[in-house]
Design a protein around this nucleic acid. Structure first.
Lengths: 247, 247
DNA sequence: AGTCTACATATTACATGTAACATGTCAAGG
DNA sequence: CCTTGACATGTTACATGTAATATGTAGACT
């Protein structure tokens, strides 16, 4: 038995989990990539036990998918999965803010003010990275307004999942020669003088744009209005955010 | 090495998980009870590995709580935790039904009709157990209306958690000699001729009743109206369902 | 009595051994 | 050509070994 290094107060499981999670969210471990326990344990220089537990944790958090006796892979989501995740995320974030409106402390609001001030400075300085950082901070703070750790945790999980889902969905389409085939489909429909097929083909392509910047496109629904008569074939039903929520 | 029984298509982890989950939800493993991996492995006649993974799964699903190097226990929730879980559950169930209203298939609705018909029969027959069974079916079906597996899973997890939380919160107070101390607190306040303290004491006690039947009490808010001027001391802020949702 | 220490016990956290299972290759046989 | 099956490879799923760590308890000391 080889004597291992002295036990820290931190557990190896947590370290391994953090490493894998970071690599997945950074995109270094791409969607669909197998998470082989022996392989990872070799690469990380630890035994298989903590790696196994970390992978299980990733599966439980929705960042990996597992099939019995076939091992786990980095979660790869299709368009439908991505939309479902975004829908769930929206439900929870909206609820979180709605509750927060009556429950947030003045300190919470002060913090939000402070972040926005910082963000204003980044704009003046033309600091794009800083802007994005404060944007993340702002949204993270929004999630805490409800003072409900149960909601907070689920919002956090869905944030990671949607991040991965966007990357996954975009990439899975991007790998189809960056949408070339979609362009070809549009052209084919045009050549066939088929208006419905052409508009549907373009709509399908536009989903990629929507998925890339889901938050931004929602406010300006202009591009989507004309499509109501020809619902997208990807979804059997329109998602909830298709129309402005009535309540 | 002792040769183990032939491998089934089912995994031991899943069996152990199912057993533990059932026992927890049935109340045979009470909240706070330690989930010792060696002990359970002895009782179940399997090795520690599958037990460990099953316990981790329980922790991930919120039915157990773990502290580093101290092991896991069956989740025990306080009043505040229970309210937070119920709040999250309400958010998700309401959203699920709202989405389902536009997305449910006619088959879904037919199934719901069928369940209600069965339930009507149970009422006529005076079959209380059957009534409760159809009640569960109905709520379970409601969760599937959104056709969003992400939402469905979270609703399911929160359903289990709230079940445990109610048992846990009620039991934790019930163990305080079944609310005797709360009654005493009310009496003390009365003897002190302190109206505010007395009403707060009774309100605190009433929470137990609310927690026991959270769904039923909400519709008739009569008992709660007078308390608005004297917010409950348990929560720093009123929960979202205190007032009818505006949106 | 009250507190400390030393020991006993039990458990976690990690490491490792191994049979069942999945998958790819490759050659023999239809 | 297509299918089949033996073989090689790699992994999962389960079992078990062990040092570090937490906890309870008896006895020594103040």
């Amino acid at each position: 038995m080889k004597p291992r290094a002295k036990l820290q107060s931190e557990r190896l499981v947590d370290k391994v989990y953090a490493i894998l999670r970071t690599h997945i969210l950074q995109g270094e471990l791409p969607p669909g990539h197998p998470l082989s326990v022996p392989e990872l344990s070799r690469q990380l220089g630890v035994s298989r036990s903590p790696v196994r537990e970390a992978v299980l944790q990733l599966v439980a958090d929705g960042l990996a998918q597992e099939k019995a006796r076939k091992g786990a892979v980095v979660a790869h989501f299709g368009l439908e999965d991505a939309l479902q995740i975004l829908e769930a995320r929206e439900v929870l974030e909206v609820a979180s803010v709605r509750i927060g409106a009556t429950r947030a402390s003045t300190k919470d609001l002060a913090l939000l003010h402070q972040v926005l001030q910082t963000q204003a400075q980044t704009i003046q300085a033309g600091d794009l990275e800083g802007y994005q950082a404060t944007d993340l901070q702002f949204h993270k703070l929004l999630g805490t307004l409800s003072h409900n750790p149960v909601l907070e945790r689920m919002v956090g999980l869905l944030k990671d999942q949607s991040h991965l889902a966007l990357e996954s969905a975009v990439r899975s389409l991007a790998q189809l020669e960056r949408g070339l085939q979609e362009h070809q489909a549009v052209l084919e429909a045009l050549e066939a003088r088929n208006p419905k097929q052409a508009s549907e083909a373009l709509l399908k392509h536009s989903f990629v744009c929507y998925l890339t910047y889901p938050r931004g496109c929602k406010k300006e629904g202009v591009l989507w209005k004309p499509t109501e008569s020809t619902p997208c074939t990807i979804l059997t039903q329109k998602p909830s955010w298709w129309l402005p929520t009535s309540g």
